[in-house]
Design a protein around this nucleic acid. Sequence first.
DNA 1: TCTTAAATATGATTTTTATCATAAAATATT
DNA 2: AATATTTTATGATAAAAATCATATTTAAGA
Lengths: 144, 144
Amino acid sequence: MMLSNSSKYAVKAVLYLALHSNEDHKIMVKDIAKPINVPQAYIAKLFQQLVKESIISSTRGPKGGFYLTTENKNQSVIKILNIIDGEKRLTSCMLSLEKCDEDKPCPLHAILSPSRNKIIENLKDKTLEELALDVKQGYSYLPL
Amino acid sequence: MMLSNSSKYAVKAVLYLALHSNEDHKIMVKDIAKPINVPQAYIAKLFQQLVKESIISSTRGPKGGFYLTTENKNQSVIKILNIIDGEKRLTSCMLSLEKCDEDKPCPLHAILSPSRNKIIENLKDKTLEELALDVKQGYSYLPL
DNA sequence: TCTTAAATATGATTTTTATCATAAAATATT
DNA sequence: AATATTTTATGATAAAAATCATATTTAAGA
């Protein structure tokens, strides 16, 4: 799909934090791995990048773990994708032509571009908070 | 993106055939490689799969090469993608959740699914002929 | 201040995807 | 029939992505 494995994992793991953590209740990476079905060491590595970019928060040592602040929760999902996959993954030409834009579109541009732009727009608009709320309210589902 | 490198190459190469070949004018793989900027041996391998699935046609020996029959040209682009990437690449859950459908959607389903379905629909509807015509008429562009 | 429990940093390994190479089979031309 | 030219089949190599492992740093609590 248009998301790498890594960014899928990252989204799942961050949403898990959005649902189950806060400043007073941090979660260790080993306790996330099983419920979302992603290798523990893999999550650990992804989380490091996300902490560095201030998408998620962490404290180390005993009683430490990962969590989301209110500020964290108000960020757009697309940030996760851009950090893990790079911005180009979502925006580059579908045939990988160097020059492909409205002026000089590739043969698939007209077919795919409007829908893809819509996807990007939707991803930009949606915050982690909102996605988590959907799950809480039973409009969508996380595990497995 | 949602297309692998391989299927991008395949689409480019097949469109090149659609534009420049017919039963009476076959094209050798070595003459396709340069103009579309794809390694020759790579095209050769992709074309083998496409011949086997009757997306494109070929004859070997002197004066041989690859070409598209009228029948070939009336096929949908999506066939290329499905053969090279497998059907799941376009249709599977964006978070790779096993169970993700309208009944039990993943958190990204509502945001992404409609646009993606539109993309799939558009790809199904579009024939190679039609795409080639766009290029011929200057509505879209192929090389590089 | 010592011990323990967590993240962090780094890098090694495995798997997948992309790329390259070559010998065999088929066909047109002489 | 022989030769040259092209696809076909197969597999080898290289690069990238995914996964695993481990030593270091930080913070809490005794």
